[in-house]
């Protein structure tokens, strides 16, 4: 394919970008001015920041925030999967129920929902099981909502489930119909088809936005003040500043902790994404030794480097692998 003799190499004057350089300089200068100014400004109270950043009360509260995030996300993902499957159900009633859930929980502010869960024990003091308008079979006091931490987890999870169900649904719909059909033709049940064939493939689509939801949830936990729960990171730092009259340093302390957690989550997300895009294999690069083999059939008899052969062959055999 290559000519035996190459043409003359191009030696041109590269295009200059004077505006880019200018904008960069202005931005860097502005940032430097801001930092120098902030370092000297009284209100930021950097000494206070240093004093409270590793305060025991703060780190405990940070742990509570983490727990709120993890528990509510786990429930939200499970419930979201259930809602997504309900929305894809052929049964119109089941479908409508899922839609109604979505409509309510996505259509009202999470802050309002949290206030509601905070007072729900007053509206429903007892839970009953039985036939309407008859003496109930079972009556239990509705005291689960007396535990404000559990109330917060429930409130956050129920709201988040609505968003997760949309993410899961998009993931399930992204899997080619032929996959379900092939699985069905192999006599696998609907449940097996979902569990072993459809859901694993949907994960590639589901994981990146779910990572965003986790990061978003970490910050949304600060709204549990609406319940009112005040043992989380934001609640505790506000509590401290109410006593010390130094609100700004404690806002900075809380922000630093939030930033630390979101940064760790972003790194984690990066690795999980990488893992799930492997296996389904877009490229052969990560396995250079095996890469030479397929050429036996696809046919590259010319003795050019094995890596080049693998790279050009991979897409050729790919037509049905489905670029989804």
């Amino acid at each position: 394919m290559l000519d035996p003799e190459e043409g003359e190499a191009i030696r041109a004057v590269p295009l200059r970008h004077p505006w880019r350089a200018l904008i960069a300089v202005v931005l860097v200068l502005a940032l430097a001015v801001f930092i120098v100014d902030a370092a000297q400004r009284e209100d930021y109270g950097w000494a206070e920041v240093g004093k409270y950043i590793f305060d025991k009360r703060i780190s405990q509260a940070a742990l509570v925030t983490l727990q709120l995030t993890v528990y509510s996300m786990l429930i939200a993902i499970t419930l979201g999967l259930l809602l997504a499957i309900m929305r894809l159900s052929p049964n119109p009633v089941v479908k409508s129920v899922a839609w109604l859930y979505l409509w309510i929980f996505r259509g009202t502010p999470v802050y309002v929902q949290l206030v509601f869960w905070g007072i729900v024990a007053l509206i429903y003091p007892v839970l009953t099981l039985g036939v309407p308008f008859m003496t109930p079979w079972v009556t239990v006091p509705n005291d689960i909502f007396l535990n404000l931490f559990i109330t917060a987890v429930i409130g956050l999870a129920l709201n988040e489930a609505a968003y997760m169900s949309e993410i899961v649904r998009a993931g399930l719909l992204s899997v080619d119909e032929g996959q379900e059909e092939a699985s069905k033709a192999l006599a696998m049940s609907w449940g097996q088809t979902m569990r072993y064939i459809v859901v694993p493939q949907a994960m590639k689509i589901i994981i990146p936005p779910t990572g965003n939801e986790v990061i978003s949830m970490l910050k949304t936990t600060s709204l549990v003040a609406a319940i009112p729960l005040s043992i989380d990171l934001y609640g505790v730092s506000r509590g401290i500043s109410a006593v010390t009259f130094t609100p700004v340093p404690l806002l900075i302390v809380a922000s630093i902790w939030y930033l630390l957690f979101t940064s760790v989550l972003m790194v984690g997300q990066h690795f999980i994404e990488k893992r799930f895009s492997r296996g389904t294999g877009r490229r052969k690069e990560d396995k250079p030794t095996a890469g030479g083999d397929p050429s036996a059939v696809v046919g590259s008899t010319a003795g050019d480097g094995p890596t080049t052969a693998a790279l050009t062959n991979a897409p050729a055999g790919n037509d049905a692998g489905g670029k989804g």
């Binding site: 032929g178 092939a182 192999l186 006599a187 072993y196």
Partner: peptide
């Protein structure tokens, strides 16, 4: 009854052998 499709419909997240063992294992 076995069925073979025009577009193969192999399970892309599984290796060739894993594709083959699914139904015998699950069903």
């Amino acid at each position: 009854i076995g069925m073979v499709f025009q577009r193969f419909n192999l399970f892309p997240h599984l290796t060739a052998v894993e594709n083959i063992i699914q139904a015998p294992m699950r069903v």
